[in-house]
Simulated assay, not measured.
Amino acid sequence: MKVQKLYPGLKRYSYFLTKNKWDAEDLMQETFFKAIKYYHSSEISSALLNKIAYHQWIDTVKKRKLEVVNTVEDEGKEDNVRKTDRIIDLVKLLVSNLTPKQAAIFILKEAFSYQSNEIADLLDTTEMAVKSTLHRAKKRLKTDTSLQSIDSFWQEEEREILYNSLYQSLQADDPVVLIDCISTLHLLAEPQQKHSNSPLNMYSMAA
């Protein structure tokens, strides 16, 4: 009977802590449960119930905050996984369909917003050549390029180097790795196939 008389006071205090009736009701139940479990009925008072309710609510708030943090972290991890998958798909697309120079220029321009004159300085070429190469790269990505092989532009070792550089720069959102790679790759220099006037070699010289 004594515990029942304390009910209205605990109800008001629980609502004061939680600011809504659903949490208040849950808090009251938890408080009464702990009071009956750990204390003799003669020890239970309004002050004791309020103390138990206060600490119980603090624990509840902390638990909820932790759940929110964990949820955000999990979503962040999922976002990172999705980002990695998108980057891998993009890099595979570039090295499979573009020449080394086209891939490098495309990423510098489209991913890192470099100006054509800045890219020209990096590649030791002209601004007009950069714009022309970028145009061809976009065209190749939009159309079926299966009849126009680009294997002759690539050496396997350098393909791997550029692939890794593109991936690392995109993953870190920092072009430094790619820029450092440009200075070391011979494939990004002026094309070597200059002895034939065939359509493919003319394309090579423009790549």
Rank of each mutant, 00 (worst) to 15 (best):
V91E: 01
S46E: 08
E78C: 03
E78A: 09
A47N: 07
A53L: 02
S132D: 05
V177Q: 10
P199C: 06
E160F: 11
Q193N: 14
L123K: 04
S45Y: 03
V72M: 12
K109P: 04
K11H: 12
I58V: 06
P175D: 05
K2I: 13
Y15G: 02
N201A: 08
Q29G: 05
M1W: 13
Y38D: 14
I179C: 00
L6V: 03
K101S: 10
K34Q: 13
Q193A: 11
L90E: 09
L17S: 03
Y13F: 15
Y38E: 10
V81E: 11
N201T: 08
T133C: 07
Q29K: 11
V81A: 14
L93T: 15
M205E: 04
S198V: 05
S198T: 13
G76P: 08
R140A: 13
E73I: 15
Q193M: 05
V68S: 06
A137I: 02
Q193R: 13
K101E: 04
E127M: 09
S152M: 15
A53S: 11
L122T: 06
V95Y: 01
R12N: 07
P199D: 06
K101I: 08
T99P: 01
L141C: 07
F106H: 10
T60H: 11
Y15F: 13
I58H: 00
D151M: 06
M1F: 11
A189K: 15
Q102L: 04
F106W: 08
L178D: 00
D174A: 08
G9E: 11
L122M: 08
D121E: 15
K65D: 01
Q148G: 12
Q56L: 10
M28I: 10
H195I: 07
P191F: 01
K62P: 03
M128W: 12
Q155W: 07
S42K: 14
L27H: 00
K21E: 11
A111C: 10
E75R: 14
S169R: 06
G9I: 09
S113W: 09
P191Q: 03
L187W: 06
T99M: 05
Y203R: 12
S165C: 07
A137Q: 01
L66N: 14
I107R: 02
K83P: 05
K77M: 13
I119V: 09
L170K: 02
E25A: 02
A47C: 15
Q115V: 07
L162K: 04
A35L: 02
T143H: 09
N164R: 14
A24W: 00
K62H: 06
N201R: 10
G9S: 12
D79W: 15
D85V: 12
I44L: 04
E190H: 15
D151V: 10
A189G: 10
E110N: 09
S149W: 00
